[in-house]
Amino acid sequence: MNERADPQKLPRDGSFEIRDWLRLELMPHFMCPGCGHGIALRALLWALDELGIDKDKLAVVSGIGCSGRTAAYIDANTFHVTHGRPLAFATGLKLARPDLTVIVISGDGDSLAIGGNHFLHACRRNLDMTLILLNNEIYGMTGGQVSPTTTADRFTTTTPFGNNEPVFDACEVAKAAGATFVGREATLQTPNLKDLLKHAVAHHGFSMVEVISDCTEIYGRKNDLGNSPEMILAQKSGMRPEAYRNTVDQPFRPNPFRTGVLHRGDRQEYLDAYRARVQAVQAAKGGGK
C-alpha cells in the first residue's frame, strides 16, 4: 500500500523538499535497491530548486535505460525518447524553444555507445543545455551487457570471462569534442554533486556532468562488489578532488577518477552565433524583415 502524504501538508523546516518536484503518483520509483541514480536525481532536483527554475520552463529529456527512466519521476516537462537520441531531440527542442532550460539525463551506454555520434556533435555545437551522464558502467535495464565505461576485467552478461576492452573517459571525450563545461562527481558526495550541477545548469553553453553511480543489483552482484553501502563507500577510495590533485604530488591512494570541474571553455554559444549570423545576413540584404 502506498501511503502517500500530501506535500502541502507535510511539516517543513525550510530545507529542500524533494516531494515538491516528484510525480508522487509514480512513487516509489522502479529502480533497484541502492541504485545510485536515485541519489543523482535528488541532487539534480535540489540544484534546480536552489536555482529557482520554473517547472513550466524546464524540459528534461532522457533516452532509454535505467537513466532514461529517472526523468519520468520529475514533475516538469519530460520527454522519454529513443535509445541514444536524447541529445538530438534536445537540440531540436532548444532550437525551437530557446526560452526553456533543457536538461538531458542519459547513461553511459545511451550517450557513449548507441548515441556516441550525437554526444560528439552536441559537444561540438555548444548549444546551451546540460547533459547529465549517469555512469554506472553497465547496461542495467537491458540485462547487464558490457558498456563503453565498464572497467577492464569486470564480468557482465556479454563478457562472461571478463571485459577485454579499454574504457572511455567520458569527460576527456566531451572536452576533446568541444564541450565548454565538463565536470565529474560521485553520488556519495551529494551536496558537492548538487553544487556542480548548479554550475553546469547555470553555464551558458553545452555542459556535461558525469555522475559516478552504482549498479548494485546487476553489476555489483555479478562482480562481487558488495552490497549497496559497500559499493557507495568504495567510491570514496577512488576519488580525489581536482584542486587537491594539483597540489599534492604523492597521492595517498591511487587515482582512478578525478572529480570536480574538469574543464571550462569560452567558445561562443551556438544560438548566440546563430543570431549574430542572422543579423549579419539581414543587414547585408538591407533592413530586417
Partner: peptide, 14 residues
C-alpha cells in the same frame, strides 16, 4: 536523507 536513493527519508530540524 542525501544518500537515500528512494527519497524515503526526510530529516527536519525543528
Amino acid at each position: 536523507e542525501y544518500l537515500c536513493p528512494d527519497f524515503a527519508i526526510r530529516v527536519l530540524r525543528l
